[in-house]
Design a protein around this nucleic acid. Structure first.
Lengths: 243, 243
DNA sequence: CTTCAATGGTCCGTACCCATACCTTAAGTC
DNA sequence: GACTTAAGGTATGGGTACGGACCATTGAAG
């Protein structure tokens, strides 16, 4: 139990504070900026790709176009996106946001992130395995696995993210998928500041294949164990680099 | 495709929709109403108890006092709270919100709720066991367990909720605790519409004791298995009643 | 009995956000 | 080439929420 020396502020359990926290994450358009950054950090829209049209985006985020455009203006000023008019126009992703662009992460925040991620990742694998994936869902997971194999080095993070996100979405719990997306975006932001080794990628790739197999067998305990092992690798990596 | 007949809208995995969803949960004071209802449904403030002062509440929720008071007015009109002025004044909880006061839950929503709850519950137990609880934290968990034993029948739900919430808060992941609080509030809303049997309570109580023992041993796999068994009992109960 | 402090109750000017309509640009379509 | 369409760009009036100050009420402290 020598670990956890990192973040131990004697939790003290403040249940009221757990519920009575700010209802708003920020100044309206700031939330929109955050969501758009999530889309890019998760690789849902790759660099060079096109975001949905403004009217569509505003509708999805349930904000007015004016507010959305304010958010887009911020991203444009940072050189992350570019807009073109005309029939084939739209808003295009020019570059990935720099690592550490968001709020700085302290030790407690990192511990929160890594633990919550482990729970969601293991939970998603377990739910998928226990429910059993139907033909179409199983095919989707296999396709995402294949993508991680086909991906080049600089595209691996994106393929990896999409694989795990697919698993979360196939878990049958949209709430879990939403939380995983948010957590994974924060995680990617940190990982982007750390070099990637070919050896790690190969190992990760083997784990993905084994995890997929266990989920599709289905063998829930094995899927959960594999998911836990897979996440703990990244966890130690990050705990090492950010301390 | 006959399996998983319960909630199967052919997931189809829409990653963009997972992130690009409304940034606001409601009309400002509606969110405040929801949070205050959570506090009551979780039993953080028991019936008859006093909520924090308006200025404090407004600060915690990061909304203006005007907006907060609009939320309080709604709850007052429903006879749930009552305000008294003066030095020993405050806002007091008069009654628990009626079951089914929130949005109606369809089959897909119920499945989402139950699955996510299982993941969080099992995850919290696992995290606590794997990290090992320190003296003060272990004492808190034991105290909450004792409360569930001391509780009368009509107070059992509250004690049960506080026990599980404590476990979530001791997991070392505030994010997990926040999500669990939200999920558990929704769950309690549904459970309040179902009669409670003494036999169920006794069984539940035994499971709590075993879970606490496994967490403190610590025996992570056993803690996780017990948490899963404990949640699946309520899950089948609810699946049965709401179908 | 006076004073003080903690609380709920009220008001106002400011800033943000929204809904809606209209304009501009560019690529297809006929 | 004229027209249509899908996209970004712009302008305006109204509603909502905020911050801060002030008032009213009650009980405790001195």
């Amino acid at each position: 139990m020598a670990e956890r020396a990192v973040a131990e502020p004697a939790v003290a359990a403040d249940p009221l504070g757990t519920v009575l926290r700010p209802v708003r994450g920020g100044n309206g358009f700031e939330e929109a900026v955050e969501r758009l950054l999530q889309v890019v950090r998760l690789g849902l829209v790759p660099v060079g790709g096109r975001l949905p049209a403004e009217r569509d985006l505003a509708g999805r985020l349930a904000i007015s176009r004016v507010t959305l455009r304010e958010a887009l203006r911020v991203l444009h000023e940072q050189g992350l996106i570019e807009s073109r008019r005309g029939r084939q126009g739209g808003t295009f992703v020019r570059a990935a946001p720099p690592p550490g662009a968001g709020l700085p992460v302290d030790a407690a925040g990192l511990e929160d992130l890594l633990r919550f991620r482990e729970v969601l990742e293991v939970g998603a694998a377990g739910l998928c395995a226990r429910a059993g994936l139907t033909g179409a869902d199983a095919a989707l997971l296999r396709a995402r696995l294949r993508d991680t194999g086909d991906a080049a080095i600089d595209g691996y993070r994106r393929a990896d993210t999409l694989f795990h996100l697919a698993l979360a979405e196939l878990s049958g719990s949209p709430s879990l998928a939403r939380q995983y997306a948010a957590v994974r975006a924060r995680l990617n932001e940190l990982l982007d500041g750390i070099p990637m080794l070919i050896r790690n990628i190969e190992h990760s790739q083997a784990q993905h294949a084994a995890l997929t197999a266990a989920v599709l067998t289905p063998d829930a305990p094995r899927a959960e164990a594999l998911a836990r092992a897979h996440t703990s690798a990244t966890a130690s990596l990050l705990r090492g680099f950010l301390s």
